[in-house]
């Protein structure tokens, strides 16, 4: 993997200019976050029946279940505003077909992109950094085909270092810097849409594990310690919305399979990536057994570090059948 710079001097100048821009932007985002927090305070979760749940769970075919879950969450308009840039992060990192349940359901990704556009998104980018040949992964996963005719939407296999920006991770415990996909950093709205599956190294692979697909150097994460590194990158890449594809669940032999597939016809949605991951962990059987969220190291660490909640027993969960 090359990390060539085309001209160090000019690059440094660009970096400087960009970091200033980045700073201004982060100020703006901070303001938005503050406002959101305030509105949350004004709207106690136990109060009105109308207020969205912490976690929405919908059963049905992927597209309809997604619509139903998002209705519970207050509609896509609560997340995507007119003209905003949206980055959708599915799992399309394997050369297998969707039926093998190693990659996100293409129908779900398609519907998600359409809904973002309906909510007024200026542009939608569907991106992942596949391990295997990007062309093959994008094609075989069915996601490229599913999204190619959606106006204002493009599917990216982000395999070039030029697409990433090297950044320090403030407050990291383990991974202090890495390259992050520029499109993800620039996006106004980041949506994680992983498939629910087992992972031999981390127990399960869900939204947070999936953020590795927006990161340039994954090798160093394995070298250091995978689970705390996943939490570190999630402090930079915090999805505003997490949609977990549990239409098919790869219950054994993940992440690549082939393994046992549970047909659950479920879509899980939450503002809180940790909560979504925690819920999915406890909702399905992995290798024939049930597990608690705290048995997944990265979920436990993320909750400890305040990135989200894993105490699903104290959260509002609304279920619906589409």
């Amino acid at each position: 993997m090359s990390e060539k710079r085309w001209n160090p001097v000019i690059q440094r100048w660009f970096d400087k200019v960009l970091s200033r821009r980045e700073f201004l932007k982060s100020q703006a985002v901070g303001g938005v976050v503050l406002a959101a927090g305030a509105s949350g305070l004004l709207r106690p979760g136990t109060g009105f029946a109308q207020s969205p749940p912490d976690i929405a769970v919908a059963k049905g075919t992927p597209a309809r279940a997604l619509r139903a879950a998002m209705k519970l969450m207050g509609g896509m308009g609560a997340f995507v505003k007119s003209g905003q840039k949206v980055l959708i992060k599915p799992n399309m990192s394997f050369t297998t077909k969707p039926e093998m349940a190693a990659t996100t359901n293409p129908e779900l990704v398609r519907e998600l992109a359409i809904m973002c556009r309906e909510a007024g998104a200026g542009s939608v980018i569907v991106a992942d950094y596949p391990l295997a040949s990007a062309d093959e992964c994008l094609a075989n996963s069915g996601i490229l085909d599913a999204c190619k005719n959606i106006d204002g939407t493009r599917v990216v296999g982000a395999t070039s270092d030029a697409l990433y920006k090297e950044m320090n991770i403030p407050g990291a415990t383990t991974l202090t810097k890495n390259g992050f996909l520029k499109d993800a950093l620039d996006a106004d709205v980041l949506i994680a849409v992983p498939i629910a599956k087992t992972h031999a190294a981390t127990g399960v692979s869900l939204a947070m594990k999936g953020m590795m697909g927006l990161v340039w150097d994954r090798r160093v994460m394995h070298q250091l310690n995978l689970s705390p590194c996943i939490v570190d990158i999630c402090t930079v890449l915090k999805p505003h919305l997490t949609i977990i594809d549990a239409s098919r669940v790869l219950s054994t032999n993940g992440p690549g399979g082939p393994g046992k597939i549970l047909v659950e016809n479920t879509v899980i949605a939450s503002r809180d990536m940790v909560a979504a991951d925690a819920y999915a962990t406890s909702a399905f059987e992995w290798y024939g057994k049930k597990y608690l969220p705290k048995q997944v190291q990265y979920i436990r660490l993320a909750a400890e570090r305040g990135l989200g909640r894993m105490d699903i027993e104290n959260m509002t969960v609304q279920k619906v059948t589409a």
Partner: peptide, 21 residues
Amino acid sequence: HKKDMENQGNEEGTAPGFDAL
């Protein structure tokens, strides 16, 4: 070739990658 990772869990009999309770 089929995969079989069942036996990769830890001593307490948890599935691969999960921590014991």
